[in-house]
Write a protein that binds this DNA or RNA. Sequence first.
DNA 1: TCTTTTATATGATGAATATCATGTTTTACC
DNA 2: GGTAAAACATGATATTCATCATATAAAAGA
Lengths: 143, 143
Amino acid sequence: MLSNSSKYAIKAVLYLAVNSSPKQRILAKDISVPTNIPKAYLSKILQELSRHHIVSSLRGPGGGFYLSDENRAISLLEIIRVIDGGYRLTSCMLSLKDCDEEHPCPMHDLVGGTKAQFVENLRRTTVNDLVEDIAEGRSFLPL
Amino acid sequence: MLSNSSKYAIKAVLYLAVNSSPKQRILAKDISVPTNIPKAYLSKILQELSRHHIVSSLRGPGGGFYLSDENRAISLLEIIRVIDGGYRLTSCMLSLKDCDEEHPCPMHDLVGGTKAQFVENLRRTTVNDLVEDIAEGRSFLPL
DNA sequence: TCTTTTATATGATGAATATCATGTTTTACC
DNA sequence: GGTAAAACATGATATTCATCATATAAAAGA
């Protein structure tokens, strides 16, 4: 469904969303331990996210990663796009070049509605939305 | 979403569904060309499908691959299971071990409905159903 | 300005997936 | 039975993805 890297990215962003603030930076290794993401690999992902302004960071003593208010308004789809590229989620289920709404392939027709809706949900849902879900007990974050 | 191998498997099965019958066997290479699937790789997939009775085959001159009536009643989910294993499609979006309906993770809650519905569609839809869709013009098979 | 603490950049290794190549078995037909 | 046509089995290579390791740059504080 998603690459491992994207899952890690979302987990890390959610961890930051819950535990960090512009004044409360968090080290990569302090995300790595509770989330069970290998430290070196997580660092690489965080840097990629930082470069694309999905997360914020500060170097030097007292530095680390955190989310700005802008970061919290970012949608899940944007995170996935940065890591997996734009194609993986939105492409045709059978990878047919000419498949579209006009000319749907058999699978497209079958799952088109649900998949399109799924991607649309990802586009519409921000980091903040998920944090609210957690805060209000509608979902939980088992790290 | 699906592995490449699963996509190839479904394409090949659909090709057989439209073009083969127990008396009209088709060679791997004659599926390979119109579907743009590498011949040697396709052969391996067809053999895997044959071993699991997803497709039927006959060796020797005049032999080849085809679908029996039983094969046509098989669901897409079974095909995907044989190639990708049971886990890939149904597992939690964030690969969290403890995520379930009682304890949904944030992504689960977000896409749970649509994904569950999607998998259920795959479970319910047979090869025959897709062929009907093609025959009646509700979808097409761009090879 | 020196040292420490952090992120960043780059490259190396390992694992999984996709692809290719070659040999073996079965079956039909002469 | 011998021969050719096919599936079947097995292993080798390549490519992508996940993981690790090491060196560099920036920032803070002494």
